[in-house]
């Protein structure tokens, strides 16, 4: 829903960094998007395409977006069991206590970019 705004933030971060290194082109952008980050990879792709078509943020037709998805993982703080959480993600499937905490799945980062 707000992926246009998020992509705007992402490209702004990258453009600022790239310009500080006197780069003129951004060729590739790599993101890590967790399943529980509330950002949708497909919508991010679409937003990237729109920014690219407008030639914004040092992008050109050849610029590419790579999204690495991070699956949700949880760990029980009582029995130590690690699991792939479902809807009730705090409930440990082994000991049934509401003591699970997320260990992965919320990441939403710009990992790297390539430019010249």
């Amino acid at each position: 829903m707000h992926e246009m705004a998020l992509m705007g933030d992402i490209l702004q971060l990258i453009e600022k960094d790239a310009r500080s290194r006197n780069m003129e082109k951004i060729e590739k952008v790599e993101l890590i998007v967790g399943d529980l980050s509330n950002a949708l990879p497909d919508a991010l792709e679409m937003a990237f395409t729109i920014f690219r078509a407008r030639g914004l943020a040092l992008l050109s037709e050849q610029s590419e977006l790579v999204i690495k998805k991070e699956a949700a993982r949880a760990k029980c703080t009582v029995c130590g069991f690690e699991y792939n959480p479902d809807a009730r993600l705090s409930i440990c499937p082994k000991c049934s206590l509401p003591s699970g905490i997320l260990t992965a799945g919320e990441t939403f980062k710009v990992q790297s970019y390539e430019g010249s």
């Binding site: 933030d9 960094d17 939403f108 980062k109 990992q111 790297s112 390539e114």
Partner: peptide, 14 residues
């Protein structure tokens, strides 16, 4: 050139 930014997307918001 590859730059490892490793930065939260919402860094500016934060």
């Amino acid at each position: 050139m590859k730059i490892d930014l490793d930065v939260e997307v919402l860094a500016d918001n934060n």
